[in-house]
Design a protein around this nucleic acid. Structure first.
Length: 533
DNA sequence: GCTGACGGCGCC
DNA sequence: AAAGGGCGCCGTCAGC
């Protein structure tokens, strides 16, 4: 609320209603007055259409999503919880046996403290490794994953002499991952369930957080004064988790822990997820108007294979997994502003090879290079960049005397256009879907940047799948609303299953009909029948 | 006991 | 020459 200067010290839950009503009234008044001014400003800047066609409409829809929340499978939660507990204990014990005898005993050192862990890894008392990356802010030796992997890779050159070090580093990464899963999700969801009391968890979708216009997602919290304690608010209760950071299992199926399995559709409902395939690269095709990239998307071929075939001068059927992976990486690095060094690091090739890949990529898609250069020039001149829907990001750092900041601003500006445009396409997709969802009873449960999660009663999965696919992929609305001829189709994949973590691809025929409905629905029903709800 | 900065890492 | 965009959340630690 606008009128609250220190929200963390206010006890909302115990506030008298009239006091809260008064505060809210002031907020409404101020918001309205600010709103009128801002509408004029939006009009002046050329993005009032976006606000009226999309942003103003989507707010109440997301409020509905927030209030609906998601059902948690508590059996799954408990299973994952005890699995993680024993796993964490096992790894921790193992780590202490690896350390030199008499150096660090269990209970004496906390691996979660980068400072203490640094002692273990780098001091003469510990594993005596030589650091080569340091924190930018504090100058302390880094214990980051990148550093650990780098050290580990080097140690493996003399495997015999470094056996225990390598093992420790492997354990450390595993330990961190499991601890994070346990602390953030098992603990987090358990305490949320305890507070909510309805078996559900909730997320909050924030509209004015992300510079590009993406929604951010966070766990709503209640600040509360606990009985028996004096003074102001002294406890924070979380009502859920951020849905945007839920981990995926390392290897689908192989990892026994899949945090996403804990989130399920309501009893009698099937879980559906629709996501745009390569949304940002499609936007890149549109803004750059690169003919080969446009053709790649129009062809309906696998994009990364298509790109690889241009880069390596081979037919698509000759493209190896590795070549496809390289083509995929280089595409995303372009969107983020990454260079050959990152590519080499990511896919395990030499920097020379990586430079060659970049060269050939730009040769295959010359319009991308041209667009990036033209865009950079425009950003330097105007000090801002602008998305296809008229959103702007101001980038004063293009004039910074600091080279790093200067180049960073250019990358941010280029990425802004792509990320922001993709984000608004998705918001329009939500609107289209919502408009068609009511009559079949489809309910949106969550959104994650380029995907929408929803539920539908079992018997209507075919209709629901088709509605999700067709609403999200409809680009004709951009012509209608903004006179934009979108250059490529927005392809959408739909998945259907028994939980957020357990979905299988839906297949459609040319007419858009779901062809594997029978198989999917049997699978989902079987799963649902085994649940206690 | 609280706050904010920081390291670290999850996702798109 | 070097260059990864955008977030949220956890624990630790220093400072008040």
């Amino acid at each position: 609320m606008l009128t609250v200067t220190s929200p963390n010290t206010v006890d909302w839950e115990n506030m008298p209603l009239d006091e809260m009503a008064y505060g809210n009234a002031i907020d409404c008044d101020l918001t309205k007055r600010c709103g009128d001014l801002m509408v004029d400003e939006l009009d002046y800047l050329g993005c009032l259409d976006l606000y009226e066609n999309c942003l103003s409409l989507i707010l109440p829809i997301m409020a509905e999503v927030e209030n609906k929340g998601l059902l948690v499978d508590t059996d799954e939660l408990n299973d994952i919880g005890s699995l993680l507990e024993t796993e964490i204990e096992r790894i921790e014990n193992k780590m202490f046996t690896i350390l030199p005898k008499g150096s660090f005993e269990k209970g004496e050192v906390n691996f979660a403290s980068p400072k203490q862990l640094g002692e273990v890894m780098f001091s003469s008392k510990g594993l005596k490794m030589t650091p080569r990356m340091w924190s930018e802010k504090t100058g302390e030796p880094s214990t980051s994953e990148a550093h650990i992997k780098d050290l580990s890779k080097d140690l493996r050159r003399d495997k015999k002499a470094n056996e225990s070090r390598i093992e420790f580093l492997d354990c450390l990464l595993e330990y961190r991952k499991r601890v994070k899963q346990f602390k953030t999700y098992v603990n987090g969801i358990k305490s949320a369930l305890e507070y909510n009391g309805d078996g559900r968890v909730y997320s909050q979708y924030n509209f004015a957080t992300v510079v590009t216009g993406r929604l951010s997602c966070s766990a709503p919290q209640v600040k509360k004064r606990v009985e028996g304690k004096r003074g102001k608010v002294n406890k924070i209760f979380k009502k859920g988790v951020s849905f945007h950071t839920l981990p995926r299992p390392d290897e689908e199926g192989k990892d026994r822990v899949n945090i996403r399995d804990m989130f399920i559709a309501d009893n009698g409902y099937t879980f559906l997820a629709a996501d745009y395939s390569a949304a940002e690269l499609r936007v890149l095709a549109h803004v750059s108007q690169e003919p080969n990239l446009i053709q790649a998307f129009k062809s309906g071929e696998d994009l990364h294979k298509y790109t690889a075939s241009l880069v390596y001068g081979k037919t698509i059927d000759k493209i190896t997994k590795k070549e496809r992976q390289i083509a995929k990486s280089v595409s995303f690095l372009i969107v983020y502003g990454g260079g050959p060094e990152k590519l080499a690091d990511q896919v395990g090739i030499s920097i020379e090879e990586a430079k060659d890949v970049f060269f050939k990529f730009f040769k295959a898609y010359p319009g991308i290079k041209f667009w990036m250069e033209a865009t950079a020039a425009s950003i330097r001149e105007k000090k801002y960049s602008e998305s296809i829907f008229g959103r702007r990001r101001h980038l004063p750092n293009v004039d910074s005397p600091n080279n790093k900041l200067k180049h960073q601003a250019i990358r941010q500006g280029i990425n802004f256009i792509i990320q922001s445009s993709a984000s608004d396409i998705m918001l329009h997709g939500i609107l289209s879907l919502y408009a068609r969802s009511r009559k079949i009873g489809l309910e949106i449960l969550a959104t994650v940047h380029d995907s929408i999660e929803a539920q539908i009663s079992h018997e209507k999965i075919s209709e629901a799948a088709e509605i999700m696919r067709s609403s999200l992929s409809d680009t004709s609305i951009f012509k209608k609303l903004y006179d934009i001829d979108f250059a490529v189709p927005m392809a959408v994949d739909v998945e259907i299953g028994s939980s957020f973590g357990d979905v299988k691809e839906a297949h459609f025929d040319e007419k858009g009909n779901l062809t594997n409905a029978q198989e999917l629905s049997e699978y989902v029903q079987t799963k649902a029948n085994s649940r206690s709800y």
